[in-house]
């Protein structure tokens, strides 16, 4: 049986285009707004949803996602609530893949086995855990694969050809190529360098390759979409969300439309780039 992630990448490939992967932080700026946003993302044009698990100390994230996590935590977000949101989302959408992205400590403290059971039951499809390199596969990667959840690994510009096989070995679902050396939302990805890197990774794997960190605008998303199976946009959506909040970081009527409008423009940009249809 195909997973939701496989099915979605295949569908996009059949349409001759890259998938748009959108990142928002769970619980930002509050539970209800975030849940409404989660539900609205597929219709706005998101093909795959990355749902950020807030953490106090996100060492790979730039200011936008750091602040989003702190807003969510201040509003009372927990990993249990994040799983509950996915569960509610699944009641109305059984096809859009949902990938949880974050750091290991909240999962470790929740309990790996309990987390995998609950995540699977909630309808989570995959995990991106920034601080679990292949050297720590026994922690969560292997148990997740055994539980039927994709463990999506990050490959980076510092991952050379010698290391790449180890990075890809237990990767499932897709490969997340980090297009810059740096933190989320800061530098702008160079489409040419990204194209070369994606080609390099594809020599080692049949999995789709999505590209993120440093994709900010519909134009840059389109440029990346020409060379990748997926384009991940996160900080730019968070920035759009933040710009609509009131002085006490509360959602306003403009919050939801601001994010879904940008998702729509990103989706149009990504869909406007024709790629060679893959089998």
């Amino acid at each position: 049986m195909s997973t939701r992630i496989e099915t979605r990448f295949k569908a996009c490939a059949t349409e001759g285009r890259a998938a748009l992967v959108t990142f928002v932080t769970a619980g930002d700026p509050d539970f209800d707004t975030s849940l409404a946003l989660l539900k609205a993302l597929p219709a706005a044009g998101a093909d795959i949803i990355e749902f950020g698990v807030p953490f106090t100390d996100p060492m790979a994230d730039g200011p936008a996602i750091q602040a989003a996590g702190l807003r969510a935590l201040a509003a009372g977000q927990t990993l249990a609530k994040t799983l509950a949101m996915v569960k509610t989302f699944r009641e109305g959408d059984n096809t859009t893949p949902v990938v949880l992205m974050g750091y290991y400590n909240p999962v470790y403290v929740y309990g790996v086995e309990r987390f995998l059971n609950d995540a699977k039951a909630a309808g989570v499809d995959g995990l991106v855990v920034v601080d679990l390199p292949p050297e720590e596969d026994e922690e969560l990667c292997l148990p997740a694969l055994a539980a039927g959840l994709d463990f999506i690994r990050l490959a980076t510009p510092t991952t050379d050809d010698k290391r790449l096989p180890a990075v890809l070995k237990h990767t499932a679902g897709f490969v997340y190529y980090v297009s810059i050396t740096g933190i989320t939302g800061m530098a702008q990805a160079d489409p040419t360098a990204v194209g070369t890197a994606v080609t390099r990774i594809k020599r080692h794997t049949a999995l789709p390759v999505a590209v993120g960190f440093g994709v900010k605008t519909p134009e840059s998303a389109a440029a990346i979409a020409a060379n990748a199976d997926g384009v991940v946009v996160g900080s730019a959506l968070i920035d759009a969300l933040r710009a609509t909040l009131d002085s006490e970081n509360r959602a306003t009527p403009a919050t939801l439309p601001a994010v879904t409008d940008l998702v729509g423009r990103l989706a149009d940009a990504v869909r406007g780039v024709r790629r060679q249809a893959a089998e």
């Binding site: 920034v130 601080d131 679990l132 490959a155 510092t158 991952t159 290391r163 990075v167």
Partner: peptide, 19 residues
């Protein structure tokens, strides 16, 4: 692997692993 019993390890982003 840098473990002192349960403790230690290398819990870093892939970008830093080669470093």
């Amino acid at each position: 692997n840098g473990h002192f019993g349960l403790f230690g390890g290398r819990f870093v982003a892939e970008t830093l692993m080669p470093l």
